[in-house]
């Protein structure tokens, strides 16, 4: 096999894995939109906030220490202990559940029945508020996230494939972190689907997603379900924050990963978990292959805009996305 062909395969594999990372972000959007019709602009900031909280808890950082020091003239920064990663993840999950309750109780419960654009505006406000709270709570320096995730290319894969394409082929490069992200994403999706299919709360969540007024009429608590859905979106945000934060450190630009999810949602549909996965994979592979094959001819840096072009092409033919609910207009 020619080296060029093998490098094309390498790009395809890496595109699939990048797609998994995009899908992780898109999943959070889908969960909330499906259950409540809210397009949550704050999903990227939730990923940032969750990752900041995880690192802060692990390092034993005192929340709001800068604020406390500024007001009281103290010099507090750390509690003096560190927390094991697993325990810190559980604490962070508890914080995200608390956040879900606060958001629902103080914001969205009061906006039930409002136009989607009002709800969307509320999430924009929420995004900026949460970013500010994250800054005040944990500071704006870049934090190193070390929960034992592997980094670097897999030497096993490289050594196994190095001879396939002659001396110009150096073996496949597969990022170990991407491999872990793929496994984690697969487990997460299976767990979410199992939760939705086989648990009472999951079935209630699906009922609310189908018709929240009908669900209300059979005694399902909408308040509980919406808090549950925001909590699950918080869990997905934490996973996305960890995976992306491990690549770049936990920093405020992490909130921009939401931009990577938008074409995935346009393509996969806003209401389908499998759509988010397949959409992520198509976007990941599409943008990487385009950059590999066409990018050098037109100056490169095509990935961001090409993802949107690809999504737009799909939209023209299937406005509800690949897996979105079919739009039926009755006259």
């Amino acid at each position: 096999m020619s080296a060029d062909f093998l490098y094309g395969i390498e790009v395809l594999i890496n595109g699939l894995m990048a797609g998994v990372l995009y899908a992780l972000v898109a999943l959070g959007f889908v969960l909330i939109f499906k259950a409540s019709g809210i397009f949550n602009y704050a999903q990227g900031v939730m990923a940032l906030f969750a990752a900041l909280t995880l690192v802060g808890v692990m390092e034993g950082q005192i929340p709001f220490s800068h604020l406390i020091n500024a007001i009281f003239g103290t010099d507090l920064h750390y509690f003096g202990w560190t927390v094991p990663a697993l325990l810190a993840i559980l604490v962070t999950l508890a914080v995200m559940v608390l956040f879900a309750w606060v958001v629902h109780t103080f914001v969205f419960r009061h906006l039930v029945g409002q136009e989607p654009i009002i709800l969307f505006m509320a999430t924009i406000g929420l995004a900026y508020f949460l970013e500010g709270v994250g800054d005040l709570m944990w500071g704006s320096d870049i934090k190193t996230l070390d929960i034992g995730l592997p980094q670097g290319g897999s030497m096993f894969v490289e050594d196994l494939t190095v001879g396939l394409g002659g001396e110009d082929f150096y073996g496949f490069f597969i990022d170990k972190l991407d491999m872990v992200a793929t496994v984690v994403a697969a487990v997460l999706v299976i767990a979410l689907i199992a939760f939705a299919q086989y648990t009472k709360q999951g079935r209630a969540m699906r009922a609310v997603a189908d018709d929240h007024q009908a669900a209300l009429s059979v005694g399902i608590s909408l308040n509980f379900i919406w808090v549950l859905v925001w909590s699950l979106a918080g869990l997905v945000a934490l996973v996305a924050g960890v995976m992306w934060g491990a690549k770049s450190g936990v920093q405020f630009s992490l909130s921009l990963i939401a931009l990577k999810a938008l074409p995935v949602l346009m393509l996969g549909g806003f209401t389908s978990i499998p759509g988010a996965i397949v959409g992520g994979l198509i976007i990941g592979v599409g943008e990487k292959l385009f950059e590999y094959s066409i990018g050098p001819l037109i100056g490169g840096a095509t990935e961001t805009w090409f993802a949107y072009v690809l999504a737009l092409i799909f939209l023209v033919f299937r406005p509800q996305g690949l897996f979105g609910e079919k739009i039926i207009e009755r006259v």
Binding site: N14, A18, S248, S253, K260, K288, Y292, G300, T302
Partner: peptide, 16 residues
Amino acid sequence: FPVTPPGQEQKSTWLQ
């Protein structure tokens, strides 16, 4: 090798 801002995803660049 241009990198699209903000630059969180650079896999293609480094594969090249």
